[in-house]
């Protein structure tokens, strides 16, 4: 008979103490609850909107008057050849951006770390951050001018070097589109991406370098045997973390640089959703596209997390 009494005593006490504590903490509650409601409205209610994908939604009708179609929208989606094109484009451009973005940022960090003239180092760094802060609208404008056929510097340089006879319309060549996206991404983010690696390099124990110098290692060998292995964990973490975002990255860049000629290589998920959802008013179909992207992204993020944990790296979530 002893235990039930004890349990019966403990449980209400715990409950009472929760509400009592909460009452004591009412100021904290008042400070946070409006924003919790805010985040629920703006981030969680759209998830309720996923029900649209299982209807043949038409605005103006009530929730119960909608025609429910089960998985039809997903069946259409998986039978749409454009969907596979979109999937291919998104993955291709994300992977190009991920690989070249990381490689260039790591290289830049290593290079900046070798600069001994402080003022030069600081100036170069500050300048390298500039493109990160401008919008893709501005960046797309600059890219368009650089690649333009009348007086774009890229065509002019290539012609001066006699590599080409006449200006090439780079933005009109479908096969080149992915690489233009990759190159402009690297141009915009290389300096910003280097910050995190520079921070990692700065935290390396200087004794390691001293020891290596005494052993007769030159600067190159110090980079190879000390700097790179020391920042390897952060490289692995960032690589895995970014793999979780393979389907959710980028849209503005593609939308702003595309044109009719290259659309088959430029169409990514958000453009697909915009075209079907807003322009063609196939709301339910576009919602299904969004659900596919969200769910696959979620799986990727958790897989990435699990992988990072298996590899003994710091947990990301």
């Amino acid at each position: 008979m002893k235990t039930p009494v004890l349990a019966g005593k403990v449980i209400p006490m715990k409950k009472k103490s929760f509400w009592a504590t909460l009452k004591k903490q009412k100021v904290l509650l008042f400070m946070s609850i409006p924003f919790i409601i805010h985040i629920i409205v703006f981030k969680y209610i759209p998830i309720w909107g996923w029900t649209l994908a299982f209807q043949n939604y038409w605005p103006g009708k009530g929730f119960l008057q909608q025609v429910w179609v089960g998985l039809d929208n997903f069946r259409w989606l998986f039978n749409d050849p454009v969907f596979y094109q979109v999937l291919r484009n998104t993955l291709a451009m994300s992977i190009i951006q991920l690989v070249f973005g990381m490689l260039s940022s790591i290289t830049l960090a290593l290079i900046i770390n070798e600069v001994r003239i402080v003022i030069f180092k600081k100036t170069a760094q500050t300048i390298s951050y500039l493109p990160h802060f401008i919008s893709w609208v501005v960046a797309a404008n600059l890219v368009r001018d650089l690649l333009s056929t009348d007086g774009g510097i890229v065509n002019e340089v290539l012609m001066k070097l006699k590599l080409i006879e006449e200006p090439i319309m780079f933005l009109g060549i479908p096969k080149l589109f992915w690489w233009i996206i990759g190159a402009s991404y690297v141009w915009k983010e290389v300096g910003w991406g280097a910050i995190i690696y520079l921070a990692a390099i700065a935290s390396i124990d200087p004794n390691l370098y001293e020891a290596a110098t005494i052993d007769g290692a030159g600067r190159l060998r110090r980079i190879w045997h000390i700097t790179l292995p020391s920042i390897q964990p952060i490289i692995v973490i960032l690589l895995i973390m970014n793999m979780g975002y393979l389907l959710s990255s980028g849209f503005e860049q593609q939308y702003l640089l595309q044109n009719g000629r290259v659309i088959d290589y430029a169409r990514v998920f958000t453009i697909y959703e915009l075209d079907y959802g807003i322009k063609m008013m196939r709301y339910s179909f576009a919602t299904a596209v969004g659900i596919f992207r969200s769910v696959v992204s979620l799986v990727l993020v958790f897989a990435a997390n699990y992988l990072a944990k298996r590899l003994g790296q710091e947990r990301l979530l």
Binding site: I39, V41, F42, K43, Y44, I45, P46, I47, W48, G49, W50, L52, P59, S248, T270, E273, L274, G277, I278, Y283, A286, T287, V289, G290, I291, R293, S294, S297, L298, V301, F302, L317
Partner: peptide, 17 residues
Amino acid sequence: YVLTMYIDGGLIPTYFL
């Protein structure tokens, strides 16, 4: 809050919201 970093309602539901 943390969960909102991993789930996304998508373009159309947000638009209707």
